[in-house]
Each structure stands twice: as structure tokens, then as C-alpha cells.
Write a protein that binds this DNA or RNA. Structure first.
Length: 868
RNA sequence: GCCGGGAUGGCGGAAUCGGUAGACGCAGCGGAUUCAAAAUCCGCCGGUAGUGAUACUGUGAGGGUUCGAGUCCCUCUCCCGGCACCA
């Protein structure tokens, strides 16, 4: 029966993962099983997992992510799709510079070494990847197109230059990433971080805000939670922009603010502006205390989380503006909580109806004037109450002509009155800000600009692209080493030809990852010539049919990618569909967490330790309370659990697992551990169980090979097809843990009746359902048992109706909602018959205690509930 | 602080539309096999009471809707992700 080629050795009784996995992988490579081209004869399925940052080693989050993708890719291939699953490297970024500082190795070399190692790891896991399409974003042939598209954006007014606020480390004289700021201090120096304004390039994502919001409705294949997060991030609000007129230095001026609660305008008792606001600067000119306060506001980090949680402070400017409707004098304050980057950098303050303003007014003894009332709710100055900000039930009071109006009516009337005075009107506003892409770092894509004393900032001409980043620099923590590289810096102005200086800022790495999915699709000819960014291959493969990645990317990466695709569409580079979206279906994988250990350094910075470097200290309840360093017994801080990451040093390398148990066990265990969308706290207990299962599958296959079906047909066939039905349902739901458990249940059933005439059919179903999760063992047994020459070409199994039929079924019997017994009835029995059978049931009679049934609930196929 | 999500045995988790809570696996316990161990196989395995049949109780906490709630509604606690320069 066997189709085995004569050269193959006899089947081994013992399960040897390393042998069968190498053989299967060699077979796939030789057959070019996963290298694909456009094929009009089949439906296409573009399956993409987010590409990894080459941090050094894979961690369990990667194994989880790429196994999920592989399960989908392989099962779709078996279902007849033309499947593309590519892989590449998000290769620019900060960790390479940190490694350079530590080890004095150029980021390029470190990155390429990491890529080589991690590629080997990925290959050893047997993923169905088309490696011919591999790309790395740090290679000039890729980032050339970042630069090219940036220049198109400049031409179209999407890219522009303005100032940006950054974290500045005064000791290292360098810009810090938010991640490098710990409790307001530089992570290496411990110095208090300052805010600093420097010029930078921005991409006008706000021009697409409305479309990015509206198009969320065209994405039924996205999780609701992600769409909700993106909608909230874009933050479209309908409000009123208006001005407080004032006279200063003999000139008539207007202070503009934006509010969504114009109905409370009569309750304004002061106005707060950001420390960077021109009015604050003006007021500080002859006010040393205010000037000092503004300086204080400029200290600290730029992170929103820090700004939102810090103590709210303010100081009066001594400048008064006129209330636009009453003409009353209102004082302007500087507030450390007002963001210059949002709206107008100034807000009207209504302490009675805004929680933050209320706390602020109480702190500084400012007036609080109630102008909204909810009938039946007493208002008092003592403490803030939720209803003070109620938009639904409130009506205006103490508001003159607006008294009695509800929120929307008042906003309409007030907006109209402001417009009549030429002091403002309704305006739609977005929370979304333009995307600042300039980074003062070396290991990134150079921004293609040349600075000329005569001509200013001049774009690099297309024919000079790419601007190549020298790969031999070694950053030392004191700023961008490109500033010391004359061979990079010195150039001539493309306009006037005079000596000029090249821009040394590089692009945010989110730029690199905003279009890589489109690049994977290009044909081999384009990969070779690199004469275009995308081509007909891209048009064939896009959009990505299934995108898989961590939930941490729910907002930024996914929003930037959607924006970038729409820009490419408007430039005519990708499909011209009105609302072209890059990712049709999205699976957001939950994070894999592990314990975090850290310690403050002498300088006040922070240092992390890997879990294997420490011993845990537990309390009586068994909870981890602390840890000591294994090397010297000194205590370290326990930081709870968090995402596995290079920077926190809490990643778990799957290599040991693969070497000990094989790729199939690692993959199966990872899928079995929990449903993909759920957060997973790492633990390897249970790996043994997955390995035992593999051994049992192999042993059953070995026995079945020489077994004659002698027994009589029992319930095996129905059981297997029932499990198959469930497995297919779960696969459709992307719930792979129960697909894995269905495989285990199938094997349990098969082992109970190995001589059943349907055992061979059942095992073929098990192998096919198992194959996307544990492809190597399935591949080997498929051939050994002579089912065919390649399981990848086998059809995906579907449950047979004939195998599922039954004539009786068991119903749950309840009395007053409590389980009291069960009931066997003919399939298709009508409600009256079921009810009659239930009422005469012995267990039912006992618990009814002779009382008459008030009501009988019959749920067909499920249960009967008798209510007495 | 704001936005999004989560919480079920000792542990990971299952329960499709509101209908048998704990599938499947791990750990543990008992047994078989073995000179012994590993491996393998069989059995038990939420809590309380009971020799047992069985009864009561039980899905983070408190309340509600319903014949019936892990699932729906309200309030709260803790944990995770994001907050625009980690990727």
C-alpha cells in the first residue's frame, strides 16, 4: 500500500522529531512548496504576520505569532488557495544603537548577525514561508522607496517642516526616546530630562483623519476593540472655536480656544494657556516668577501619560481678556496641563462643570460658577460629582438668555451668537495629530534633504536616491554619529551646486513598517531591477487577506499603515478603490508576558535582569514579592509581569524547547496554551503533555500501519466526524487551542478502538487537522501510511452528514432550573411528546414533590425545565 | 489620568444564540509494568458534609433582569495593552 520511495529507510518505531523535521523541511525546500507567483486559476490568500525586529533571538511571542499565521496559511493551501506567506525584518531601530553603545559593534553588523541567527530559528520551526521575498528595511534597495515616497509627499503638501518637542538629556547632550526616560530622568545619566524644541518633518495624517475614521466601517474583518481604539484615537469632536478679545501693548488681539462644551461658556471664570503659548511668553517678559514657572513647566518628559498624571499647577499672568458674550474680565493663567500641540494651546476653564478645572479652581481659590443644573440633584462646592459634567440631562441656569436650554440647544444658540459677533463658530476637531517622522538618530532611513546656505532645505533629486546610510558607524550615546561623518555630510546643493550639508535626521521606524506588506508582493523582476516601489504583483496580492500581530500595534502601526496606503493610492501606486485598505482581516494576538526584574544604577538610571539571572522570593501565599540576583545574592526589584521584550530582558528563547522536543511540539504547545487573542503569562508546564501527544500520534501511526481492521464498526466514525465538525468551526473562529484539543480527542477515540474499520479514515482526518499546527509529523505519517505523497496536496477534511446521523438524543432535565436528571428522546420528537416524557420522569416527579407544573420550558435538542 | 481588554479548580484553559460549569491538557494522588528508575498504561482529581447513594455550594467582589446567568445590565477591585521617539 505504501507509496514510499524505495530509498527511504523503514519506518522508525520511536518518534524522532529532529529526523522527521529535517526530512520534511528538505522536502518542502526541494519542492519549492511555499514559493508562489500570481495564479489566476486559484483564489489568492495573502497571509501575513507582522515582521520581527531582529533583536537577537526569537521569543515566545514570535513563535505564537508565526505559528498562528502558519496554521492559517497551511489550512488555506489545503483548501485550494494560492497562498503567499512572506517574511522579513523590521531592521532599523533603537536596540541596535544600544547594543553598539554596550559592545562597540556597528548597528549594521549587529543587525545582520541577528537576522542570520533568527532566520535559522524561523526555518527550524518549519513555517510555510516564501523566503525568496525576504526583505530587510535597513537595506538601501528597500529604504530608497521610503525616501522616494517622502519626496512625493513633500511635492503634494503631505510632508512639511515645523518644530517638534523632544526629550533632551542635558548630560549626554542627546535626544531621548520616551522609553529612555524613567521617572523624568535619562536612563543612562539619571539627569532630569528637559523639553526642547527642534525642527522636524511631519506627515499630514490629519488630512486623512475623516477618511481613516469613516473607512473603519468598511472593515468587518477587524476586531471591534481595535476599531474602537482607532476611532477614539482619531477623536473626531464637534465643538466651537471662539475667541476672547483683549487689548495688549496698544493692539487689539484675540485669544482663541476650542471647546466641546460651549453650553457652559457662561460659567467661564478663567482661561488657561500652555507654557509655550505666545501669551505666556509675553506675560513672562516682565514677571520673573512667571518666567521661572514656565521654565519649570518645560522640564520633565513629553509623554502624555506623564502629563496626565502629574500634579496640575498654574500661575496667573496678570493679563485679562474679555468674555466674548458678557464682556466680563477673565484672567489668563498658565497651566502645566494645557498642551500646545492640541487645539489652540489654550482652554476656557469652567470649574463648575469640568473635573480638572474644578480641582484647579479649588486649589488656587478661583471662582466657581454653576451654569448647568440637573433637576433633583443638589449642587455643592464641597466635592466634584459626576453629574456636573452631564450632557444628557442638564439644562442651563445662571446663563441669562440661555437659561432653560439643553446642551445641544445652548451650543447652537451660543455658536450663532459668537458668529454674529465675528468671534468664532462651530468647528470639527480631531484629537489625531500629524505624524512627526524626524529622529535624531543614526540607525534609520536618512531623510533625503540637503541644506544649502543659499537655497535652504532642498530635496535630493530622484536620480540621486537612495541616500545611503554608512554602515560602519558606532554610536556612543552622545548624539547622532552622522554629524561627525564628513563623507556623508558633505555634498553639493542640487539647485545651485555650491557646497552643502546633508540632513542627518533619520525617519521614524514606523515609516519602514508602513508599506512592507505592499513590497512583499512585487514580482521577481522588480526585486531584481528595483526600478519601482510596487508593481502588478502587488496589485495581485493586495490587500493582505489575513494580518496577524500583537495587540500593542492596535493603534500606531495599523493607523500609519492605513494612512500610507491611502497616500500610495492617491499617488496612483496601488489599487484605486475609493477606500483602499491594506488589511482585510486582522487578528490581534495577545501579548506573551513574563516576569520583569530591574534595579536602579548608581547614576540613577535603570538596569534590567533576565528571569534566569535571578531567584524568586515568595510570600506565604506563593506570590512573587521580590528576587535576588543569582550571581551575588543582591536584591533586585520585581516589576510584575509584562510583554517579553529585548529592552526589559524578559524574553524566553524557544531554542532550548525546539532542541529538546522539536518544532512540532513547540508549535502545538503554543497553540494549545490559550486562544490567540488572549494575553498569555509564560510558563512551560504543559510542554511535556504536548510532547507526549506527539509520541502517541507517532505510536498509533506505527501500529496502524501493520494493523488489520478486524473489529466491528462502532461509534468511532460518528465521534471523529463530530470532532471534525467542531474543529472546523473553531478553525473558522481562529480558536486554535480547541482545534489542538480536538486532535487530542480524536486520538483518544482512536486509541480506544484501534481495530475499528474506520480507524484508518479517522487517522487520516486527524493527520490533516493536525498538519497546520504540527506539519512535520503529519507530513511523515501521511507518507508512511500511504495516504498520498504530500499532505499539503490533500483536501481539507469535511464532516460527512451520513456519519453524523443518530436516532436518539439525550436532553437535560431540570426542575426549577436545577439539574435533576436526563431524558432520552427520539430525534425530531415534538414539544408535547418531550413535555409528557419529562413530567412522567422519575427524577422529575421526585423533585416536583407532587406540585403541579406551572410552566414547562423545552429547548429542542438541549433541555427541559419544569417550573413548579 | 485617559482609551481598549481581561479575571472560571493547584495551573493553562473549555462551555457556538441565556440552557448539563470545569471539555482537553499540566501538576498531584493511587495502581499496573520494572531488580530499580525513566518511559508507558489504567483509575481518581472544584469546595463542604457523608462510608456511600446523594445533597448543598461554586465562574474576581457586590447588586439586578430571567423558568434558567461564566455569558445580559449597574457599581466596584485587581491585572494587562496603548497614550504619538520601544517596536
Amino acid at each position: 500500500m505504501s507509496n514510499r520511495a524505495p530509498s527511504l529507510p523503514a519506518m522508525q518505531e520511536k518518534y524522532q522529531p529532529s529526523v522527521i523535521e529535517q526530512a520534511a523541511q528538505a522536502h518542502w525546500n526541494a519542492a519549492r512548496a511555499f514559493n508562489v507567483d500570481p495564479d489566476p486559476a486559484k483564489p489568492k490568500y495573502y497571509c501575513l504576520s507582522m515582521f520581527p525586529y531582529p533583536s537577537g533571538k526569537l521569543h515566545m511571542g514570535h513563535v505564537r505569532n508565526y505559528t498562528i499565521g502558519d496554521v492559517l496559511a497551511r489550512s488555506h493551501k489545503m483548501r485550494g488557495y494560492n497562498v503567499l506567506q512572506p517574511m522579513g525584518w523590521d531592521a532599523f531601530g533603537l536596540p541596535a544603537e544600544n547594543a553598539a553603545i554596550q559592545n562597540k559593534v556597528p548597528p549594521a553588523q549587529w543587525t545582520y548577525d541577528n537576522i542570520a541567527y533568527m532566520k535559522k530559528q524561523l526555518q527550524s520551526l518549519g513555517f510555510a514561508l516564501d523566503w525568496e521575498r525576504e526583505l530587510a528595511t535597513c537595506k538601501p534597495e528597500y529604504y530608497k522607496w521610503n525616501q522616494w515616497l517622502f519626496l512625493r509627499m513633500l511635492e503634494n503638501g503631505i510632508a512639511y517642516k515645523k518644530t517638534q518637542v523632544v526629550n533632551w538629556d542635558p548630560v549626554d547632550q542627546t535626544v531621548l526616546a520616551n522609553e529612555q526616560v524613567i521617572e523624568g530622568r535619562g536612563w543612562r545619566t539619571g539627569a532630569l530630562v528637559e523639553k526642547r524644541e527642534i525642527p522636524g518633518y511631519y506627515l499630514a495624517i490629519t488630512q486623512y483623519a475623516d477618511e481613516l475614521l469613516a473607512a473603519l466601517d468598511t472593515l468587518p474583518g477587524w476586531p471591534e476593540r481595535v476599531k474602537l481604539m482607532q476611532a477614539n484615537w482619531i477623536g473626531k469632536s464637534f465643538g466651537v472655536r471662539f475667541a476672547f478679545p483683549y487689548e495688549l501693548d496698544g493692539k487689539q488681539e484675540k485669544l482663541w480656544v476650542y471647546t466641546t462644551r460651549a453650553d457652559t461658556i457662561m460659567g467661564v471664570t478663567f482661561v488657561a494657556v500652555a507654557a509655550e503659548h505666545p501669551l505666556a511668553t509675553r506675560a513672562a517678559q516682565n514677571n520673573a516668577k512667571l518666567s521661572a514657572f514656565i521654565e519649570e513647566c518645560k522640564r520633565g518628559s513629553v509623554m502624555e501619560a506623564d502629563l496626565a498624571t502629574m500634579e496640575k499647577k498654574g500661575m496667573p499672568t496678570g493679563i485679562f481678556v474679555d468674555h466674548p458674550l458678557t464682556g466680563e474680565q477673565v484672567e489668563v493663567w498658565v497651566g502645566n496641563y494645557v498642551l500646545m500641540s492640541y487645539g489652540e494651546g489654550a482652554v476656557m476653564a469652567v470649574p463648575a462643570h469640568d473635573e480638572r478645572d474644578f480641582a484647579f479652581a479649588r486649589k488656587y481659590g478661583l471662582a466657581i460658577k454653576q451654569v448647568i443644573d440637573v433637576p433633583g440633584k443638589p449642587w455643592s462646592l464641597d466635592a466634584w460629582q459626576e453629574w456636573y459634567a452631564d450632557k444628557e440631562n442638564g439644562v442651563c441656569v445662571n446663563s441669562g438668555k440661555y437659561d432653560g436650554l439643553n446642551c445641544q440647544q445652548a451650543i447652537d444658540a451660543i455658536a450663532a451668537d459668537l458668529a454674529a459677533k465675528d468671534l468664532g463658530g462651530k468647528q470639527v476637531q480631531f484629537r489625531l495629530r500629524d505624524w512627526g517622522i524626524s529622529r535624531q538618530r543614526y540607525w534609520g532611513c536618512p531623510i533625503p534633504i540637503i541644506h544649502c546656505d543659499a537655497c535652504g532645505s532642498v530635496p535630493v533629486p530622484d536620480e540621486q536616491l537612495p541616500v545611503v546610510l554608512p554602515e560602519d558607524c558606532v554610536p556612543d550615546g552622545s548624539g547622532n554619529p552622522l554629524n561627525r561623518r564628513d563623507d556623508f555630510l558633505k555634498c553639493s546643493c542640487p539647485k545651485c551646486g555650491k557646497p552643502a550639508r546633508r540632513e542627518t535626521d533619520t525617519m521614524d521606524t514606523f515609516v519602514d513598517s508602513s508599506w512592507y506588506y505592499a513590497r512583499y508582493g512585487v514580482d521577481a523582476a522588480t526585486r531584481a531591477k528595483n526600478d519601482r516601489m510596487v508593481d502588478a504583483g502587488t496589485a495581485y496580492w493586495m490587500p493582505v487577506d489575513q494580518y496577524i500581530g500583537g495587540i500593542e500595534h492596535a493603534i500606531l502601526h495599523l493607523l500609519y499603515s492605513r494612512f500610507w496606503t491611502k497616500v500610495m493610492r492617491d499617488l496612483g501606486l496601488v489599487k484605486q478603490d475609493e477606500q483602499f485598505e491594506p488589511f482585510a482581516n486582522l487578528l490581534t494576538q495577545g501579548m506573551v508576558l513574563n516576569h520583569i526584574f530591574s534595579r536602579r544604577t548608581d547614576k540613577g538610571g535603570i538596569e534590567y535582569f533576565a528571569p534566569e539571572e535571578v531567584d524568586l522570593v515568595r510570600n506565604e501565599a506563593g506570590h512573587v514579592t521580590g528576587a535576588t540576583l543569582r550571581a551575588d545574592g543582591s536584591p533586585v526589584d520585581y516589576g510584575g509581569v509584562g510583554t517579553m521584550s529585548k529592552s526589559k530582558r524578559n524574553g524566553v528563547d524557544p531554542q532550548a524547547l525546539i532542541e529538546q522536543y522539536g518544532a512540532d511540539t513547540a508549535r502545538f504547545f503554543m497553540m494549545f496554551a490559550s486562544p490567540p487573542e488572549q494575553t498569555l503569562e509564560w510558563s512551560d508546564t504543559g510542554v511535556e503533555g504536548a510532547y507526549r501527544f506527539m509520541k502517541r500520534v507517532w505510536a498509533f501511526g506505527f501500529a496502524l500501519k501493520s494493523q488489520q481492521a478486524t473489529g466491528e464498526a462502532g461509534g468511532l466514525r460518528r465521534e471523529i466526524h463530530l470532532l471534525l465538525k467542531q474543529a472546523n468551526y473553531d478553525l473558522g473562529k481562529l480558536q486554535f487551542n480547541t482545534v489542538a484539543s480536538a486532535c487530542m480527542k480524536m486520538l483518544n477515540a482512536l486509541e480506544k478502538t484501534p481495530a475499528d474499520p474506520h480507524a484508518r479514515e479517522g487517522f487520516s482526518i486527524l493527520l490533516r487537522v493536525l498538519s497546520p499546527i504540527a506539519p512535520h509529523i503529519a507530513h511523515a505519517l501521511w507518507i508512511e501510511l500511504g495516504y498520498g505523497d504530500d499532505i499539503l496536496n490533500a483536501p481539507w477534511p469535511e464532516p460527512l452528514e451520513e456519519a453524523l446521523v443518530q436516532d436518539e438524543q439525550e436532553l437535560v432535565l431540570q426542575v426549577n432550573g436545577k439539574l435533576r436528571g436526563s431524558l432520552r428522546v427520539k430525534v425530531g420528537a415534538d414539544k408535547a411528546a418531550i413535555e409528557a416524557a419529562a413530567l412522567t420522569n422519575e427524577a422529575a416527579q421526585k423533585f416536583m414533590e407532587g406540585k403541579p407544573a406551572k410552566k414547562v420550558v423545552v429547548v429542542p435538542g438541549r433541555l427541559v425545565n419544569i417550573v413548579v
